[in-house]
Design a protein around this nucleic acid. Structure first.
Length: 824
RNA sequence: GCCGAAGUGGCGGAAUAGGCAGACGCGCACGACUCAAAAUCGUGUUCCCUACGGGAAUGAGGGUUCGAUUCCCUCCUUCGGCACCA
């Protein structure tokens, strides 16, 4: 026996150095093996690795290792999402260039990551702020622009006053409309910005065919896209101007008793009569002053003013008043609605407040709605009434054309030429411009004569300057104040042109990093086709669910857009997605630097070793759920590690004296464990992988007591044990494998053991006997015992006879190998 | 309000093609070893009672079933997404 005690530090450093020298985790194309691309979300280089990084990276590493042992050619790359605001924050605070700060952090985090003992292939590392990387981020922008998927537009956009930049809709969170990054309430600004036409893919993004993603992510994306099916209908003003509206309830058209326009609607001015002009313009001014938060507050009482104008309802030629109210948003639909107070809550509230007519057009079964006396809108199902030719048509609760009433009315509208079936989304195009320095430059130039044009490909990348000395956030990119950077020539006429000084949303960089890993230094294209054809799509993607409607939506869009441009293949970038939960502080709060409750993995690695930290992170919670940290708990996994060490290194006196039964029991337990561990790794159920291994170890200790050491069964148990443990604790298992069992290096190149189903089978089972649902006794029978055999064993039981008191049970249910239930 | 996920000992959590609830670990208690402590090893540990026996219990209440943590209905709580979206 070599070492007497388990020394994690020595072992871990030794093997990490050897694996690296041997390029053990290098992933290269090998057509003789099935491939497995395991991807985990790349980190932002914020400075120090925290326990959350370990939690998101090491269990997926274990699974990637498991897949490798199953015979897959596994690629498990790592990189850095290295553009972003904190670098600029550091620049402002410490007067250090963001580049310096970022690369120093990357250096530090790489070193910390190496202590994980993960199977990262560092030769595939990609860093998004490297010019060789962002050259292609820029190139993608140009491709999107050339295909009409990137465009510039002026509109009211979300602006974070603290980050001093615009944000995409996805990056504004919740009711209070807070900046996703810093939590500051965002405001609206009217600005000209670059957008990606993500909405073009709205319908396709709603389909998740053929991909294995968590239900809640799919639901979240579906909610976010917010598809509603209905009809667009053209009303007319009395002067004959068309007013287009969108409605999900065309079946209630006959109940439209007024119209409402958003204060920003272009037609408001024209329809307002002289008499109402002042009131309307005052209302518009006041609406403009209010923030979105005030305007969109759900509990706000309805406000609005009459314009004096009237519209004609195209289905019944009714003349109905047109109002202006801020509950109608210019950003959704057409900015104008038909109001059906009898069947819409909001319209009802408005009608009652301003004394407008309420006409029911859907009659629920068994009651009669009265427009004058009803106290709330009736949005439910019923028969159409007051609706001319459609009276009596059943309106169901189905949405869209599945509803017979809606279908019939849409057909009618189409025939009359006053409306058509239509679909609306709450999903918006992706606002990509950021008024910040530390991002990929938007590779566009503006010429007075030729307008906006992309930088020619041979001039890419547009590189960020190093000589910036003013970092103060002004609401405009520091690039704008650089003396020469923005000056360039127009690619059309060669005259003066000005560079776009905004940079791209960093989510653009992370929309394609999984493809840069394929060939991180390739300079002819964003990736090498040979690599793409072998590795893509990503087989397993892991990361946090907070990205549900941001990154995870952006990169699906990106992949589809690239597919349509002929750059990628397949409809989805990722086949299987799994999300880890969060490691909370011990008091259940979020860990944060400011609260000082952050668990530092380095300290734990120092004290317990990486294997123990890895194992504990897999064991202490369900990985897909997370849990509050428990600093005592790690002692349990540390103890496991030491006990395994002892089990494999300590001699036993009674070696070889085990009975056949002991040996058979050991073998059974080994193969039962193997079966469970295999299944649980597959399902990302790491906590039960560990508990099964602990159980088997306990059994092995008992078997050792019983003299199993040295037997063939013992040797098999040791081998299988280490192979099962290898993905979890790569260092200790390598040490025990090569140094103590004397097996050939490396355990990580071994194949996953085969399950011997026959050996795993129990031959004797103890089955509970219930009387009226209560367990009263247990009988031991052969696992294969027939119903009759079990029954007679039960009837032979004294305890059972006592409970039966000589009577025959009314009913006997025998579940073979499981249980017997008697009813008396 | 709508959509989704989840509620099991002091704690993290096991067990779902309906079949012994509480695996594994933390914590705690007792014991062994030790001059002592740490480490280690062993035993116990859901709750209640009239305690070698019995009863209750998987958020609450109901249902289906011989049998429900698991399936169905109603409700409560927590977390996440959406929300004046027409």
């Amino acid at each position: 026996m070599k070492d007497l005690s388990y020394n994690s530090k020595v072992i871990e450093q030794k093997w990490q150095a050897k694996w690296e020298a041997d390029k053990l985790y290098r992933a290269v194309i090998d057509h003789s093996k099935p491939k497995h691309y395991a991807l985990t979300m790349l980190p932002y280089p914020s400075g120090d690795l925290h326990i959350g990084h370990w939690f998101s990276m090491t269990p997926p590493d274990a699974r990637a290792r498991f897949k490798r042992m199953q015979g897959y050619n596994v690629m498990f790359p790592m990189g850095f999402d290295a553009f972003g605001l904190p670098a600029e924050g550091a620049a402002i605070k410490n007067n250090i260039h963001p580049k310096k700060w970022t690369y120093a952090n990357i250096e530090r985090m790489r070193a910390q990551m190496r202590t994980m003992g993960a199977m990262f292939d560092w030769e595939r590392e990609a860093v998004s702020c490297d010019p060789e990387y962002y050259k292609w981020t820029e190139w993608f922008f140009i491709q999107l622009y050339k295909h009409g998927l990137a465009y510039r537009k002026k509109q009211a956009v979300d602006w974070c006053p603290s980050c001093n930049t615009t944000l995409a809709r996805e990056q504004v969170k919740g009711d209070d409309r807070l900046c996703d990054r810093c939590g500051t309430p965002v405001i609206k600004k009217e600005l000209e910005q670059w957008f990606f036409k993500a909405t073009k893919y709205a319908d396709e993004l709603l389909r998740f065919d053929g991909i294995d993603w968590p239900e809640f992510i799919k639901v979240s994306q579906t909610n976010w896209i917010g598809r509603s099916e209905g009809a667009s209908v053209t009303f007319k003003t009395e002067a004959g101007d068309p007013i287009e509206i969108f409605t999900t309830r065309p079946d209630t058209l006959w109940g439209a008793t007024f119209m409402v326009m958003s204060p920003e609607h272009p037609l408001v001015e024209k329809i307002t009569t002289a008499e109402h002009a002042q009131a309307v313009s005052e209302y518009k001014a006041q609406a403009a002053k209010q923030t979105d938060i005030q305007r969109e507050a759900k509990d706000k009482e309805k406000t609005g003013v009459f314009t004096g104008g009237y519209a004609i309802n195209p289905v019944n030629d009714e003349r109905i008043p047109i109002w202006v109210a801020d509950y109608v948003l210019m950003t959704y639909g057409t900015g104008a609605i038909m109001a059906v107070p009898a069947h819409d809550e909001r319209d009802f509230e408005f009608a009652r407040k301003f004394g407008l007519k309420v006409i029911p057009v859907i009659q629920p079964e068994g009651t009669e709605l009265n427009g004058d006396t009803m106290t709330e809108a009736y949005p439910g199902e019923g028969l159409m009434i007051n609706s001319g030719p459609f009276n009596g048509t059943p309106a169901t609760s189905d949405k869209g054309v599945k509803n017979p009433a809606i279908k019939a009315v849409i057909e009618h509208l189409e025939q009359k030429g006053v409306g058509k079936m239509d679909v609306n989304y709450r999903y918006r195009d992706w606002l990509i411009s950021r008024q910040r320095f530390w991002g990929a430059p938007i590779p566009m130039v503006y010429c007075e004569t030729h307008g906006w044009n992309p930088v020619p490909d041979d001039q890419l990348p547009v590189v960020l300057p190093d000589d910036i000395d003013e970092w103060k956030p002004t609401g405009e990119s520091p690039l704008k104040f650089h003396p020469t950077w923005k000056d360039t020539t127009c690619p059309i006429c060669g005259g003066y042109a000005m560079r776009e000084t905004d940079t791209m949303d960093t989510f653009m960089c992370s929309s394609w990093y999984h493809m840069r890993y394929l060939s991180p230094h390739y300079d002819k294209a964003p990736f090498d086709d040979a690599e793409y054809n072998y590795w893509m799509p990503v087989d397993t993607y892991t990361g946090g669910s907070e990205h549900a409607n941001m990154h995870l939506l952006y990169f699906r869009f990106f992949h589809k857009a690239l597919r349509d441009m002929g750059i990628t293949e397949g409809n989805e970038p990722v086949m299987q997605l799994r999300n880890q939960g969060m490691v909370l502080a011990e008091d259940n709060s979020k860990m944060s630097k400011s609260k000082g409750n952050v668990v530092a993995p380095d300290v734990l690695v120092q004290k317990y070793g990486a294997d123990t930290v890895r194992a504990y992170l897999m064991f202490f919670a369900r990985w897909q759920q997370g849990a509050p940290w428990d600093s005592n708990g790690i002692e349990g996994t540390a103890r496991w590690m030491r006990r395994v060490w002892t089990l494999f290194t300590d001699a036993s006196d009674s070696a070889g004296t085990a009975s056949d039964e002991t040996k058979k029991d050991l073998r059974r337990k080994v193969h039962q464990t193997l079966k469970r561990v295999t299944r649980d790794f597959e399902n990302f159920e790491f906590n039960t992988v560990i508990s099964s291994l602990m159980e088997l170890m306990n059994e092995m200790y008992k078997a050792r007591e019983a003299g199993a050491v040295g037997t063939n069964e013992w040797k098999e148990a040791q081998e299988i044990y280490l192979k099962m443990m290898a993905p979890v604790a790569p260092h200790i298992s390598e040490e025990l494998w090569t140094e103590h069992l004397g097996k050939p290096y490396s355990i990580h190149q071994q194949l996953w053991p085969a399950i011997d189903e026959a050996a795993a089978k129990e031959d004797v089972v103890e089955i509970p006997v219930q009387i009226n649902g209560k367990v009263r006794d247990r009988v031991t029978v052969a696992a294969e015992a027939s119903e009759d055999e079990i029954k007679s064993a039960v009837m032979a039981s004294e305890v059972i006879q006592k409970y039966l008191e000589g009577k025959e049970p009314k009913k006997v249910i025998v579940v073979k190998g499981k249980l017997v239930s008697l009813v008396v």
